[in-house]
Design a protein around this nucleic acid. Structure first.
Lengths: 221, 221
DNA sequence: ACTATGTGGAGTAGGTATCTCCCCTTACTT
DNA sequence: AAGTAAGGGGAGATACCTACTCCACATAGT
């Protein structure tokens, strides 16, 4: 009785042309959300895929569903980067490498930036993945501080702020010099280094974890 | 023949109630643009002043004119800060102080941030004031570098990026912890310090002045 | 009391967005 | 080869939003 259900098809498999178009939609969404952010319309995405809007709505009940389908896997990527970084020997270098890699992903995808720093889009799987990342990043930070590379007053909750800053530079300059964020991140990281007697005392305490969450809920991209 | 024209009234002076309302509009605009940015509608500003939209349009021909009237003087403020900073003895400290003061103004006014970093709003006077500021800031930066406090590879065109970064943190966290930007700016400034052999070589050259202009024209707040 | 001046806010015009509907086309089955 | 269930296209319904106008009514100042 049970029909041969493909690896990712719980019900009836799609007709061949429909399956092809589903992939076209996802590829198009990846590109369009990446370039224009989540404010891009499904019309845009459909037409960029050479399809009509109706086709998109047949496959994904709402924009929200498409976003969720798109970004769950991309967030897993970042989680894996953090896991990898925790295995490295040099804790400071691991922290630096992770930061660069994450920034690399962020810089290339405006939609990813928006979904990482806002709670307005993406629920379920996306939220889970975010939650899973918190302890990883905390350990990464604490390890780098313990090893003496990262300044002692840095906090895990500063990480989203760091990506916020890099993201804002990307948005500001990508039309003119898409690599400029590297310059800013390099200067930022110089400021995060533990300097025996030199670093100025920070004039303000870090956010609490819940405050980060609240900020993500209030913030509009 | 010449009627007694008040100090800021080239033609006939406004009726007393009208003048009062004009001030109410400016005060309301200052607050609403400051909180919600230039996307705030004139309806919002009018109602926040306890007036109707028509009254605002009678006094200011368009939103653009109101914006121009609002921000010209605020930009002059920043220009004066730079002039003051150029008079100070300690070049590095002057640079740091100016940066903190400018950030203070930016952090308190979303409209100001938008007008400083975008060319989409504000023409004439605002643009002049921006242009006037460029050589001041350039001198401030060069002086701080010559004195050995500021890292040698910093460029004057990095200043807008710095404010962009601080502004993005403000926007992200103001609902939760409106002073948090201070923490980020402190870390940033630590990264700008000249460190004899320590600072990493920056992986990317700075923007040219014209590129900053272009970025300001492309960028949407 | 008279009138030039000022006011309020419903209304206009024009835009953008998400999502639906229905007629036509296509892939697969028998 | 024909039948049919599924898929596709895109105009348009609906629901917003914006900047700005217009005019009946109100008021300051003489």
């Amino acid at each position: 009785m049970a029909r041969d259900a493909g690896p990712a098809a719980p019900a009836r498999p799609l007709r061949r042309d429909a399956e092809l178009n589903r992939r076209r939609i996802l590829a198009s969404a990846r590109e369009v959300f990446g370039r224009r952010g989540l404010e891009a319309t499904l019309d845009d995405i459909a037409h960029h895929a050479g399809l009509g809007v109706g086709t998109v709505y047949r496959r994904f009940p709402s924009k929200e569903h498409l976003v969720e389908a798109m970004f769950a896997e991309r967030m897993e990527e970042i989680g894996k980067l953090a896991e990898e970084a925790l295995k490295a020997d040099d804790a400071w270098q691991a922290f630096v490498d992770f930061t660069w890699q994450a920034a690399e992903l962020h810089s290339a995808d405006r939609g990813l930036r928006e979904i990482m720093l806002s709670n307005r889009f993406g629920h379920e799987h996306v939220a889970e993945e975010k939650a899973r990342m918190v302890p990883l990043i905390t350990r990464l930070v604490e390890r780098a501080k313990a090893a003496g590379g990262l300044r002692g007053d840095f906090a895990p909750t500063d990480i989203p702020l760091l990506h916020m800053m890099v993201g804002s530079v990307v948005e500001f300059t990508e039309a003119v010099d898409p690599q400029l964020w590297r310059r800013c991140l390099a200067m930022l990281l110089d400021g995060l280094r533990a300097e025996p007697g030199k670093a100025t005392e920070l004039p303000h305490p870090p956010l609490e974890a819940e405050e980060v969450d609240e900020a993500m809920s209030c913030w509009r991209p």
